[in-house]
């Protein structure tokens, strides 16, 4: 009888274990396809890019070159120019856009606001356009004889050669970027705000807090994870900017608005292709994205 009991618990235990094991394996099976795709089509190519960046030559005739391509980057004025452009967009556009998105989201979160859905839809709508499409719209609006200049002329001001002047062209890119992405980030903030009890705001108002105070003391701290997420996404996106540089300004005038991704594309596929050099530059971009993301996460943590 005693032994019977033992075997009973044993078999139950065995069955329990095998069931847990089965579930564990099922879990692995479920995530395997997605994980494999990321390993094969993201991590492995990244490793390949690194190897490629240490070589030189064309096609299959590659020889080891050490850090030769990396020292070349340091001496390349076009890379410096594209680096400057990309960071200029980053430093101006990302903060302006995120602050604007945050302000819009907290206004739209107001319970007593009318036409909330309508405003939200209209502000989000630019996100429905493709990057190439909106580049074309802005290119045509800011063309020499385009809409903006016509308006300026009618107002008695002198028209601006938007794409002939380096700073004007950069300005157009920044405006276009803010236009395209503010609504997108706003939706993330609006979603984050739904997790904050509205009564917190009402309590703050009763305690005499101004709108600005409750924005800075309630909204911003409680939305921190979402702000972190959108900041990382925006930095990542801006460092990889390509479509706008190609289609809105063609990188011009000269190379005054060319982004790093545009330059890498040209180095790979347009001028005499140099895959190794392009790979070295892309490794540099990857390091920048990684470092900036890590700084962001650290800053985000330390304020906890």
């Amino acid at each position: 009888m005693n032994s019977d009991d033992n075997s009973g618990t044993n078999s139950r235990k065995k069955k329990g274990l095998s069931l847990a094991k089965k579930h564990n394996l099922t879990g692995w099976a479920f995530l395997l396809p997605a994980a494999l795709l990321i390993v094969v089509f993201s991590f492995y190519p990244m490793f390949q890019a690194f190897i490629l960046s240490l070589k030189k030559g064309v096609g299959q005739n590659l020889t080891w070159n050490g850090i030769g391509m990396y020292t070349r980057i340091l001496k390349d004025p076009t890379f410096r120019q594209s680096l400057f452009n990309t960071f200029f967009y980053l430093i101006i556009q990302v903060p302006v856009m995120l602050v604007l998105a945050l302000v819009l989201a907290s206004i739209l979160n107001n319970k007593n606001l009318r036409f909330k859905g309508l405003f939200r839809t209209m502000i989000f709508l630019p996100c429905a356009t493709s990057l190439v499409s909106y580049s074309m719209i802005f290119r045509s609006m800011f063309a020499n004889d385009g809409f903006i200049n016509t308006v300026l002329r009618n107002l008695g001001m002198s028209p601006v050669g938007w794409f002939q002047n380096a700073w004007a062209a950069r300005f157009v890119i920044i405006i276009a970027l803010i236009w395209r992405w503010t609504g997108y980030n706003m939706v993330f903030y609006l979603s984050g705000l739904q997790n904050i009890e509205y009564s917190v705001y009402e309590a703050a108002r009763i305690d005499g807090a101004t709108a600005l105070q409750s924005f800075l003391k309630i909204t911003v701290p409680l939305l921190k994870p979402t702000i972190l997420l959108t900041t990382i996404m925006s930095i990542n996106g801006t460092l990889q900017l390509f479509d706008e540089s190609v289609n809105l300004t063609s990188g011009g005038p000269g190379k005054a608005t060319m982004t790093m991704a545009h330059y890498i594309y040209n180095t790979s596929f347009v001028q005499s292709p140099n895959f190794s050099y392009a790979a070295a530059m892309s490794i540099v971009i990857m390091l920048m994205v990684a470092v900036l993301s890590l700084i962001q996460m650290k800053v985000g943590d330390s304020r906890e």
């Binding site: 579930h23 564990n24 099922t26 879990g27 692995w28 479920f30 995530l31 997605a34 994980a35 990321i38 089509f41 993201s42 991590f43 492995y44 190519p45 990244m46 390949q48 890019a49 490629l52 990542n236 460092l239 990889q240 390509f242 790093m260 991704a261 890498i264 594309y265 790979s268 895959f275 392009a278 790979a279 892309s282 490794i283 971009i285 990857m286 994205v289 990684a290 993301s293």
Partner: peptide, 29 residues
């Protein structure tokens, strides 16, 4: 649903792929 330490670790590694710029892997791809 089936999470354990191993799977959480794999997820953290996969998240690193978010930081890889597409231009960087475009040529090897």
């Amino acid at each position: 649903i089936y999470h354990d330490k191993g799977k959480d670790a794999v997820m953290n590694v996969l998240l690193l792929a978010m930081m890889l710029p597409f231009v960087a892997i475009m040529i090897p791809l």
